[in-house]
Amino acid sequence: MRRIPIALAACSLVTAPTAAIAQQAGALIVADPVVDTPGGMQAWRVKYWTTDGAGRPREATGMVVAPREAIPPQPRPVLAWTHGTWGVASRCAPSLSKDFWSVTAGLDAVRNGYVVVAPDYPGLGSAGMHPFLVGADTARSVIDGVRAARQIPGAAAGGRYAVWGESQGGHAALWTAQEARRYAPDVALVGAAAAAPPTQLEQNLRLTSNRALKSFFTAYIGHSWASHYRAPMASFGNRQTQGIMNRLAQNNCISLNMKPKLGMILGISALNSRLKNIDIGRIEPWATLARRNSPTTANIGVPLLIAQNAKDDLVAPSVTAAHVRALCRSGNRVRTIAIAGEGHATSAKDSAAATLAWIADRFAGKPSPSDCGRS
Rank of each mutant, 00 (worst) to 15 (best):
A155R: 02
V146G: 11
R150H: 02
G135N: 12
V116I: 09
G135S: 10
R140L: 14
I152W: 00
A109R: 01
Y114Q: 03
G123N: 01
V142T: 14
V115Q: 09
G113T: 07
A148L: 08
A127S: 14
I143R: 06
I143K: 07
A127G: 11
G128V: 14
R150F: 01
A109E: 05
V115K: 06
M129F: 02
P131D: 00
A148V: 08
F132H: 06
A109T: 01
T138R: 02
G125C: 00
Y114C: 06
P122Q: 12
T138H: 03
Y121E: 07
I152E: 03
V116A: 11
M129A: 13
R150G: 15
P122I: 02
Y114W: 05
H130Q: 06
D120Q: 02
G145W: 02
M129T: 15
N112E: 14
V115P: 14
G128Y: 10
F132S: 05
V117R: 08
D144N: 01
M129N: 08
V146L: 12
A136M: 06
Y121N: 08
H130W: 15
R147K: 13
A155S: 04
A139G: 15
T138A: 13
Q151L: 02
G145R: 03
S141L: 02
G113E: 07
V146I: 15
R150C: 15
A149W: 00
S126D: 12
G154P: 11
S141F: 01
D108S: 07
V146F: 03
V110S: 08
L133P: 13
G145E: 01
G123I: 03
G135M: 09
G123R: 06
I152M: 07
I152G: 03
S141I: 04
V134L: 01
A109S: 08
G145Q: 11
P122L: 14
D144K: 13
V117D: 13
D144F: 02
V146M: 06
Y121K: 07
A136C: 03
A149G: 08
Q151A: 10
G154Y: 12
V134P: 09
D144T: 07
T138F: 00
S126Y: 08
S126G: 15
A148Y: 12
D144V: 00
P119S: 06
T138P: 04
D144I: 00
P119G: 12
G113N: 04
A155N: 04
G123Y: 11
R150M: 14
I152H: 04
D108F: 01
H130Y: 09
V115S: 10
V142S: 08
G125A: 14
A136G: 04
Y114V: 04
A148C: 08
